[in-house]
């Protein structure tokens, strides 16, 4: 079944008050918040896959956004977790305010690129970034991407 970016965002997990101050613990915290998602087949496996991928090539951008992700059999469908830190998370590329954690099954390469491209394209715009940093509810986050309701 073809999915849309709006569907992925609507089914996302939101953690708008990340407590971790370091990059890897922040990923761990965000992964933990996905525990209840029934598409998550193996949380620990997913966490390791994401960290391995980060070790290989970090996804934290100097613009304060990061896209940690993994293509792994630990998820049954595309899953997304949106994390935000009020203070900023320390990374090699400067402080990170927004984290978009993506998990994709091995087979869904095109869908993965579609979601990643959609998020990165929107977050690149200064106005959207500012709105995301200020948003205080998941609905407000969705609105920043032009998606309404949950």
């Amino acid at each position: 079944m073809k999915i849309s970016c709006a569907d992925v965002l609507k089914s996302a997990v939101f953690n708008l008050n990340l407590e971790a101050e370091q990059y890897r613990p922040a990923i761990h915290e965000l992964v933990h918040s996905m525990n209840g998602d029934n598409r998550m087949l193996d949380t620990e496996g997913f966490r390791q896959a994401v960290l391995l991928r980060e070790d290989e090539s970090p996804t934290a951008l100097s613009s304060g956004v990061s896209f940690p992700h993994a293509r792994t059999p630990c998820v049954s469908d595309i899953v997304l977790a949106v994390g935000r830190s009020q203070k900023g998370i320390a990374s090699d590329n400067g402080p990170i305010r927004l984290l978009f954690l993506i998990g994709t099954p091995k087979t869904k390469i095109q869908e993965y690129l579609m979601v990643l491209g959609f998020l990165a394209r929107n977050v690149k715009q200064a106005a959207t970034y500012e709105a995301l940093v200020r948003a205080d509810t998941p609905e407000a986050i969705l609105k920043c991407f032009g998606v309404s309701g949950t």
């Binding site: 290989e56 090539s57 293509r71 390469i109 095109q110 690129l113 990643l116 491209g117 394209r121 690149k124």
Partner: peptide
Amino acid sequence: ISLHDIKNYLNQPEIANIVTARDLVLDE
């Protein structure tokens, strides 16, 4: 990596900073 998989995303420089070969590879 299949050209078919990535051809529609070639005009998105935003993802060039984030994506590596591992993210695109068909491992089976």
